[in-house]
Structures are given as structure tokens and as C-alpha cells.
């Protein structure tokens, strides 16, 4: 595996790791790792360093919805322009072009059910090219970005063994 691949493997799980520690884990030169990180950022491969938050454990209300959107693709530009019109809304967190029964998957974060509903009916459905939408609300997150949210790791091994 290349250093690049290994760096990505590690920081995907732990973006707070510093360059020194990263170089220790990889057994690579610190300067080389720092340069590689910079390159990865410049090339847009590393797009950000986010924090995973389980909002349901806070007092702050968040409602997440997945919306399946069917659209009419436009000659010459396909889905790109309609996708852009949708992703520009700040409440939209993700937009994916999908294979299968619908075209765009829009993931939305709102403060309330009402807010999400009004976004779908007032903004999304009224776009010219949108044929139909189906909105699914997320009730509970068990696992997100590879992390299990509902259980903590517990070490149940014998404390000393040969």
C-alpha cells in the first residue's frame, strides 16, 4: 500500500492526528508525510476535517431526511445543473446521483419535521425538472460513517494472559 493510501486510511478515521504521530504510525519521514497531506488537500482529495456528532445525545433538535428525487435530465447538461440547483440550499447536506428507481438522493438536515416538509413542498417539488419526490425521515442512527453509535466498545478479555 502506498503512503498516500495509508495516510488516507488513518485520517479518515482520525482527522485530529498530528503530522508527527502520523509519521510514527507509518514509519515514514515527517516532512514527506506533511508534503503528502498538503498535496492531498490541494488536489481536493482531502475535502475537509469534520467532526462526527451524535446530535441525538444533545438537547439540540435535528431532523434528518433522505429524499428520493426523480427528475427530467436536460439535453447537454444531464443531471448536473439540477443537482447544483438543489445542493446550493444550505439545509441540503448531501446530493448523490443514483442508479436504480430514482435519480437524485438528497439528504437534508432541518430543525423540525415542519421545516423539512416545507422545504420539499415549497422549494424542491416546485423545480421545473423535478417529477416526483419521496421523503424518508431518519428515526434513529445505529451506525454512521463506520462508527457504531448505540454501543461502546468494552474490553471483556482476561486482564493478563499468556
Amino acid at each position: 500500500m502506498s503512503t498516500r493510501e495509508e495516510i488516507l486510511g488513518i485520517i479518515e478515521k482520525n482527522s485530529r492526528i498530528d503530522v508527527h504521530e502520523l509519521s510514527v504510525l507509518l514509519g515514514a519521514d515527517e516532512l514527506l508525510v506533511a508534503n503528502e497531506l498538503k498535496n492531498l488537500e490541494e488536489e481536493g482529495i482531502i475535502c475537509g476535517y469534520h467532526t462526527m456528532i451524535d446530535w441525538s445525545k444533545t438537547d439540540i433538535e435535528k431532523v434528518n431526511a433522505l429524499i428520493e428525487v426523480k427528475v427530467t435530465p436536460q439535453r447537454g447538461i444531464g443531471f448536473d445543473s439540477i443537482a447544483e440547483r438543489i445542493y446550493k440550499y444550505p439545509e441540503v447536506t448531501s446530493v448523490y446521483l443514483m442508479s436504480g428507481g430514482f435519480d437524485l438522493m438528497v439528504i437534508l438536515e432541518g430543525k423540525s419535521l415542519h421545516e423539512v416538509a416545507s422545504f420539499v413542498s415549497n422549494k424542491l417539488s416546485t423545480l421545473d425538472t423535478v417529477l416526483s419526490t419521496a421523503t424518508h425521515f431518519i428515526l434513529k442512527k445505529y451506525k454512521d460513517h463506520g462508527t457504531i453509535l448505540t454501543k461502546k466498545y468494552e474490553d471483556t478479555r482476561e486482564i493478563v494472559s499468556p
Binding site: R157, E158, I159, V160, S161, P162
Partner: peptide, 14 residues
């Protein structure tokens, strides 16, 4: 080790 409360172990062979 069992008698030591709050011990961190690096003694496991699995």
C-alpha cells in the same frame, strides 16, 4: 493485577 483497582493492562496475549 486483579487486586489492583483502576489498572491499565498491556498484559494480554490475544
Amino acid at each position: 493485577v486483579l487486586e489492583t483497582e483502576g489498572a491499565i493492562s498491556l498484559g494480554v496475549g490475544e
